[in-house]
Design a protein around this nucleic acid. Sequence first.
DNA 1: CTATCACTACTTTTT
DNA 2: GTAGTGATAG
Length: 796
Amino acid sequence: MSFVLDGFEPDHPTTSSFGGSSEVDERLLAGLNPQQREAVLYRGRALLIVAGAGSGKTSVLTRRIAGLLDTREAWPSQILAITFTNKAAAEMRERIHGLVGDAAQGMWISTFHSACVRILRRQAEAFGLSPSFTIYDSADSRALIKRILKELEADTLGLTVSSVAGRISKLKNELTDAESFARGANVDDPKESAFLEVFRRYSEGLARAKAFDFDDLIAQTVYLFRAFPEVAALYQRRFRYVLVDEYQDTNHAQYALIRELVRAVKPQNVPADTRTRLEADGSIAPASLTVVGDSDQSIYAFRGADIRNIVEFERDFPEAKTILLEQNYRSTQNILDAANAVIGNNFDRTAKNLFTTIGAGDKITGYTGYSAHDEAQFVADEIDKLRTAGTSLNDMAVFVRTNSQTRPLEEIFIRSALPYRIPGGTKFFERAEIKDAMAYLIQVVNPADDLALRRVLNVPRRGIGPATEATLQAHADREGMPLRDALRDVEQLGLGPKVTGAIRTLVDLLDEASGQALTAAPADIFALLMERTGYVTGLRATRDAQDEARAENLEELLAQTKEFRKQNPEGTLIEFLTNVALLAAADEIDDTDGSVSIMTLHTAKGLEYDTVFLTGIEEGLLPHQMSAGEPGGVQEERRLFYVGVTRAKRRLFFSLAMQRSQFGDTTVALPSRYLQEVPAELIEWRQSPGFANSRGGSQPRALNARRDSGDRFSYGTSLPPAPNREKREWANAVTAKVRDNGDLTLATGDRIRHADFGEGRVTGVTGQGPKSIAEVLFDTAGRKKLLIKIAPIEKL
DNA sequence: CTATCACTACTTTTT
DNA sequence: GTAGTGATAG
């Protein structure tokens, strides 16, 4: 068997092994502190950079790579850098390019998942795998599991889709496949054996569909390397410098992958014509490994991240050097003091104290709203004030613990005419019509993917109902063929002439598109499919406004396929699909579009903003209810809080609500324990939890039942204003509905009445059509900007 | 085969 | 409060 690595240059000469590196240009070291400098310059087998939040680790990492290139210690193709998001990868590439120019071409800088897809696609054919395998996202995995549970009627045993999906994911992250699980499984337990059966069928289902789920991408690469040392050797020889960012969030499979990559190459796997320097025994020395991380920012235990990977790095690599970066270049001292104080309550950590020379800065501003809407209104008002004062919306971010918290924020932001974005939350690719269109594309690339075909069988409606589908499926099962092949045999199945014709048309179209899958531009294939299925025109024909929106979304998808081709002139459909599948929430952030970002704390990791709003700081939300039962849960939530706080450069806001509705009913919320861990003098409460209660009164209320013991929310200097009457009235009167005023027009001087703010006078109108915004001076509520189309207003 | 209505489980975080 | 499911009628 021979393995061809397209694009791989043969083994490069290695001018020096891991020797001295005194030649690194001073230019690359400019402005670094002694520890950062050492981290850039150190040469050796293994390096751990413990990088506190905001300690300039990206700078260190990029300069370290630039140094390797600049001194010719490494060719670009010998470098593999793993980042957490595609966006981070792109930024790192750009920064290195800025330092060393075109020498930056040819490096692998990508996420674990992207790197593994690349490896798997290159090696697939040698193992009888399809190089055009598709990637199942969580929703696809769940759909498959759901089907299996139904088949087995396993739901009676208490197996739910989410429990099974979670468990399989965990097992895969531990590199346990169905068969190795079977060896240790307790088959006497009916639930256990049912789970095993589901796991087996799930794995078979993926294999039959030529699909990998997210976890497979990593695990299968590890299996590949372990089963075929000569394949692993290709990459071990190629990547002489492996660098991993956010190492504290690697799981076992990712850890194993790294271990495989930095193994020495055995003499039998060294080609005779290698130009790489050999050891005395004819082997090639292991690659150099650099990992960067901060155990205080480990927030992905739920998906298998193992903090021990970083904590025990020195045990794994006894010769490892550890460098600690503690100086923070991002935040003010007040922000750091708050962060340090809170994280100090995690007992099993190695002490680390962030410091800065920036100065104390502003105090943290605290606000307790009566409801989530009130809280959101506070955030919107503050953002508007800061914007007026000259801070760009791009420099502000609102953090939430759970996705559902974005809703009230969105409602208020829309009403306040504040442009916002929810990276990862828009879920463009999760909309039904987009998933339909994607299913067409997937089925074109990968005809084995039954799940994709089943999804579009009757979309748009073509009269193929459940009964017809069952007939087709039965034929496929009988013949042991994919559903797509069964469609081609439709004439033999004795279905009605109408249905038969519809199926023939569909399968001919798919076959035609598949014929072009490897060559045509993704946009052309997409256009062909939409044209011939009439999906978009069908949506346009209905008078439903939602269908019109769906048609627009499909147009947007078409635009995206075109944009993709612009970025990647040779890009094929399969690459487009891969990109989409591996898109991370943070990849969607555009920091130049003039909007505020609302995101989860998890998405916020690795980012920084001038101004940060940390919202929903309540017991049950942060720490989340669900974490209470898990070992280490409360500590992990504390790290999440810490991550949120340390994102802020200059201004930090803490907010919470006194009542929050979930599940349809409203419950009283208590301030988070983490709030009490922040020294009281660091927070200036605009409205403190101690002085507001859910009815808007001003009686002190119990704070975690510790009201009288030195009440940490009473503070001498900055007494909170007692909640004033107007505020209270509008705070709870906010309705959840977004309304539509049609084409109501307003002009300067008009008087209006607003459902929440009362009466006011229009002082200016900007923007066009449905986006026009009125600036209104309210008699009691002050100046507000309102989106005329949807604000709850009437002209007087 | 499709449309409508009632019912229930659901919200942790993500590649 | 709602998305997704399942039963029933058209």
